[in-house]
């Protein structure tokens, strides 16, 4: 509320300023010179210990939440100049070597990229593994909530074939449709379907937006839908979904992509940073190294952004002020 009133006041001020201009009289008002001076002094005081922090922002809301929370802490409490860069994963990793990207805050596992850029994996050493960030990625097969409610037995993969015809669409060529997802993600669904003898065909939605829209619509209009989904994801707060139980993951059951017949493992999400930056004396290095939070934390910030339509900066600031104790832990 305070915010709105503030905006109104600024709006009135603008009108007043334009009016002043029209009358060509000198008026007082917000002085740019004063702010410039203040900025200069602040810059002098901060001493520039942190410097620039180039934060890659991969295109999903959960990532955005983590990136802005770390970024805003760095900016507000360490005095860094934070540059947020909207990039896909591959491009972000390429940026480590050129100094254009310092931090990837949430990585879902890119063995091929690690092989190319992480020294321990045989890469050129431009990227460094900074450990887990506390979030756990859960990947699996999901159905919309109404379906799980009306047909609870569907949550066991053994019963899927009974319902296969219900899942048929114009795209699935006479079989049940299984909705695959964004090409970026690790997916073994074709193999799982084959090896479990399921009467389904994978149709790739091609993007996160398409998958989310599909689940939203399915819940809304009580359509039959089964597909690849994951947590943490803000949409879980809005659209109920249930995970279908597959044969449990065991070590090594996904080693040969063609023979996969088990569920996805839980993936601890990781942080990767530019080696050059990690070796610098930026005060933000410690912050990124210590950063760790839970799926619930992330979903909370993501919900601020999506449901409450807050800007990522505001959402992060709100969470930070509510959880200063956690943040203090990162800053030690």
């Amino acid at each position: 509320m305070r915010n709105t009133r503030n905006r109104w006041r600024r709006g009135t001020r603008a009108v007043a300023a334009v009016a002043c201009l029209a009358l060509a009289t000198a008026c007082g008002g917000g002085s740019i010179d004063e702010e410039t001076q203040a900025n200069e002094e602040q810059a002098g005081a901060a001493g520039g210990e942190c410097g620039d922090l180039n934060m890659a922002v991969n295109p999903w809301v959960g990532y955005e939440a983590s990136a802005y929370v770390v970024g805003e802490v760095a900016r507000e409490q360490l005095g860094c100049t934070v540059n947020y860069k909207d990039l896909k994963e591959d491009v972000s990793w390429q940026g480590f070597g050129t100094g254009e990207v310092d931090v990837v805050i949430e990585d879902w596992g890119h063995p091929d990229l690690e092989k190319k850029f992480v020294a321990e994996k045989g890469g050129d050493g431009s990227a460094t593994d900074f450990g887990e960030n506390g979030n756990v990625g859960i990947i699996g097969w999901y159905v919309p909530g109404w379906l799980a409610e009306e047909h609870p037995d569907i949550l066991d993969y053994n019963n899927l074939n009974e319902y296969a015809s219900e899942f048929e669409t114009s795209e699935s060529g006479g079989k049940g449709q299984f909705l695959g997802s964004d090409p970026s993600y690790v997916q073994f669904d074709e193999a799982i379907i084959d090896n479990l003898g399921l009467d389904f065909k994978v149709v790739f939605s091609g993007g996160e937006a398409a998958t989310i829209t599909a689940f939203e619509q399915a819940q809304e209009t009580k359509d039959w839908l089964i597909g690849y989904f994951w947590e943490p994801q803000y949409i879980h707060a809005e659209v109920p979904m249930e995970q279908v139980e597959l044969p449990p993951y065991e070590d090594g059951c996904q080693d040969d992509p063609a023979k996969v017949a088990c569920d996805y493992p839980e993936t601890p999400l990781k942080k990767f940073v530019s080696t050059e930056w990690a070796e610098s004396d930026s005060t933000a290095v410690g912050l990124v190294q210590n950063f760790e939070w839970t799926n619930d934390d992330q979903n909370q910030v993501a919900a601020y952004i999506t449901s409450d339509k807050m800007s990522p900066e505001d959402a992060a600031a709100k969470w930070i002020s509510d959880n200063q104790d956690v943040v203090d832990g990162w800053l030690q």
């Binding site: 905006r7 600024r10 709006g11 001020r13 603008a14 300023a17 334009v18 201009l21 008002g29 917000g30 002085s31 740019i32 702010e35």
Partner: peptide, 14 residues
């Protein structure tokens, strides 16, 4: 003016 007054330099939020 745009170099002098904040509201004429930065578009007021609305």
């Amino acid at each position: 003016a745009s170099r002098t007054y904040t509201d004429l330099a930065e578009f007021p939020e609305n």
